[in-house]
Design a protein around this nucleic acid. Structure first.
Lengths: 258, 258
DNA sequence: TAGTGGTCTAGACCACCGT
DNA sequence: CGGTGGTCTAGACCACTAG
């Protein structure tokens, strides 16, 4: 068999993404079974009319999403067939909400401009005396409050944010149109007690536990574009991670000591 | 300049890992500055005496760890120079603790064997009537209680766990020597209230918030080997994740009814 | 032993960035 | 425009798995 027709509209333009999308659909539709085996790389290369390298690139995508394993000597095994699509969801509350079929909402509670404190200068790599914009927003899903978002922007970003309507749903989308890209992020997740503002906005008691996500986002050049702290009502959200030893074991594997 | 000497003991045997390790050291030691630029792929290939493909493989490693960005048309930018080892930590409390310079400890509180309930059969893909081993362990860092771990093992794994000493620090290490590998894991992180056992073991009040990590781990063939639920005292740990638009391992999803 | 994925090479063309 | 990273090809050898 040669050259399966690849939907030209599928995903973005590159070949390996098209192959990955096609394989993903085959897997999630159950074509290979729940714990079944994928065809060999060479067979897939022939089927799609591409080189083995391109097939491997496509399979790397599926593996990063936790769809398949890979081991030397054996065909790849299907891990699951109902995984969430990952990626940009995490970088944007709006995208995440919509992908779940929920209607995201946002209301700006306050916005102010002031000099950055030491921690903010550290996180955003600002010079002493630099100013930042600080926003406080209540985020909703289908009208229900779920999260309080405190974001600190460097002034060159904040100036644009300040011009957005108070009820704009997405911040990242209009910023992207101004050439400001959110591409890399560091996240820290822990628990924190609700303060007075949290309690008022979310309708919970002071001191009740909230799931906190702190996030520093940079653009492709490594320049920080936001430092945000989101506090979620328990039960409204959970963070999900997939990881694989094989793919990232490249770190140190010393036998002991460290 | 040609062929920089690569430490033959560095990391594991493959070329790209050696290159990655060498570059990581150069970056973390500040050779390229905080937001500096890396040499071009071609230059690195020449320097190390390898092909450009191998250099790209090495750089993919550093990028997955959040050390560098990459953009078409521009040299790679150094993002940070002091990042913690991220991914594999999630697979093992012991490794994570040691990587932080803390001394991990564990005490087995209870171990029992019983028929799996519906949820456990679902998670571990067991047949009706199958039995599981359930453990309850208190985990400590340098002697201080930080986490309660409830793990469900399929019987073929549990039989081995049951033979381990009650105070063994790591479970995954002795299991690996029996050929049981923990390679892929799905994690879900949220908040939960402490129950009576949690409160007693961790020394907190009933109902006080705990950070919960649920984890299902599989071996390379996709067979589930454990289903675990860890409850951390607030302030003792935070989960840290790095992701970029191009390749991500983290996603967020609505909380389902357990 | 045959088949598989992991690694590596040496080229090629293109899209994009900055000058 | 030249330099860069992103993609893709066509081969090669090896380490490992399984029958």
């Amino acid at each position: 068999m040669t050259d399966v027709a690849l939907d030209p509209d599928r995903s973005v333009g590159t070949l390996y993404r098209k192959v990955a999308a096609d394989l993903r659909e085959a897997i999630t539709s159950g074509s290979y079974g729940e714990a079944g085996r994928l065809p060999a790389e060479g067979a897939l290369a022939e089927r799609y009319g591409v080189s083995r390298g391109t097939v491997r690139q496509a399979l790397a995508v599926l593996r990063a999403d936790g769809l398949v394993t890979s081991r030397r000597g054996t065909r790849r095994v299907v891990l699951g067939n109902a995984r969430v699509q990952s990626f940009s969801e995490l970088l944007s509350f709006t995208h995440w909400a919509r992908s779940m079929g929920e209607e995201p909402g946002g209301r700006l509670e306050s916005l102010l401009r002031r000099p950055a404190d030491a921690a903010e200068r550290e996180q955003l790599r600002l010079e002493p005396g630099a100013e930042v914009y600080v926003t406080l927003r209540l985020r909703t899903l289908s009208g229900t409050p779920v999260m309080v978002e405190r974001t600190v922007y460097p002034s060159w970003v904040g100036e644009l944010v300040a011009q957005l309507p108070a009820d704009v749903v997405s911040h990242t989308e209009p910023l992207r149109e101004h050439g400001i890209l959110f591409t890399d992020a560091d996240h820290t997740i822990d628990v924190v007690a609700a303060n007075a503002d949290d309690a008022r906005l979310l309708g919970c008691r002071r001191g009740s536990p909230l799931l906190r996500e702190r996030r520093r986002t940079t653009d492709p050049t490594g320049i920080p574009v936001e430092w945000s702290q989101d506090r979620y009502l328990p039960g409204t959200v959970a963070f999900s991670i997939h990881n694989s030893l094989a793919s990232s074991a490249l770190s140190r594997h010393a036998r002991e000591g460290d």
